[in-house]
């Protein structure tokens, strides 16, 4: 117990390791914002989101900050703004350990009376974990697989923006990327998402963009599951026609390297 307390204190005092900082950024800027999709994709999550009415701030010492707004059943995330409820983490490492499923208790610094709402929020995160780290039993269900792909795709694309900001090797890739959009389509009917790259900044969006600079079409959800799990050779899938790439293939290929960088942290 004393060792754990000392670990926590020392983690709070020292500067975060770059890897911890990047992972914390990913958790707050790429994973948590996916509650937006979760509320739409999952019935229970949608019901909980409709019951919630708060603005919840995650604040990490020496690390990222995000504000989640729950209103009218919708979840929106901002990097700025005021919140009526707040959770403080002494270090990036502590935040990351909580996301890894360890028993970490953040320090509530605002809205302490909203314990009930926070419990519901905790349930939301459990549901999200189910979609991002699914069990074999869950993956038996075709509709679940599709939702898993949508959530994972958006996490991956959003997290690319995070690694592009901080990871030196990802930075090299971004420096070579020209401005434009890359569309990802899962055939035959989605999910679809795209990234917009503008002066080295990467932002992810759901849906279809007009006239993308490059377009990646994936044969079906099951192949997308394999790609997300890193079990499919993308070049081989491209040659066989399972993945169809068109447009600026150099840009798409360079961007593909971002997923590898994201995977290194999120694993």
């Amino acid at each position: 117990m004393i060792t754990e307390i000392l670990d926590t204190i020392s983690g709070a005092i020292r500067e975060p390791r770059l890897a911890d900082l990047i992972l914390a950024d990913m958790h707050l800027y790429a994973v948590l914002p996916r509650l937006e999709e979760l509320a739409r994709l999952d019935e229970e999550a949608g019901a909980i989101a409709r019951e919630l009415d708060m603005t919840l701030e995650f604040l990490v010492r020496g690390g990222p900050r995000v504000v989640l707004t729950f209103a009218d059943g919708k979840v929106t995330s901002y990097r700025m703004g005021r919140a009526n409820t707040g959770l403080f983490f002494l270090s990036c490492d502590l935040l990351n350990r909580m996301f890894a499923g360890e028993d970490v208790t953040p320090i509530p610094f605002k809205g302490i009376t909203r314990v009930g709402q926070l419990k519901k929020f905790t349930r939301l995160t459990e549901i999200m974990t189910r979609y991002l780290k699914p069990s074999d039993a869950d993956m038996e269900d075709a509709a679940f697989r599709k939702s898993h792909v949508e959530m994972s795709l958006m996490v991956g694309l959003s997290a690319s923006g995070v690694v592009a900001d901080r990871d030196p090797r990802a930075r090299r890739l971004v420096d070579d990327l020209r401005d434009g959009t890359i569309q990802y389509k899962i055939l035959p009917d989605g999910p679809n998402a795209y990234v917009r790259i503008e002066k080295g900044v990467i932002r992810a969006f759901n849906g279809i963009v007009k006239d993308p600079t490059a377009c990646i079409e994936i044969r079906d959800v099951d192949l997308a599951v394999g790609l997300i799990a890193g079990e499919v050779d993308t070049f081989a899938a491209n040659g066989s026609g399972d993945v169809k790439a068109s447009g600026d293939l150099a840009m798409a290929d360079e961007f593909n390297g971002m997923f590898d960088r994201v995977g290194l942290y999120l694993e």
Binding site: D233, F235, A236, G239, S240, G241, K244, A245, D253
Partner: peptide
């Protein structure tokens, strides 16, 4: 080729860089 060679065909001769199909 894909069973025994990474990417099936390596480098710039990989079909991905031309017009696959």
């Amino acid at each position: 080729a894909t069973a025994v060679i990474p990417s099936g065909i390596s480098g710039n001769k990989n079909p991905a860089f031309a017009v696959p199909g």
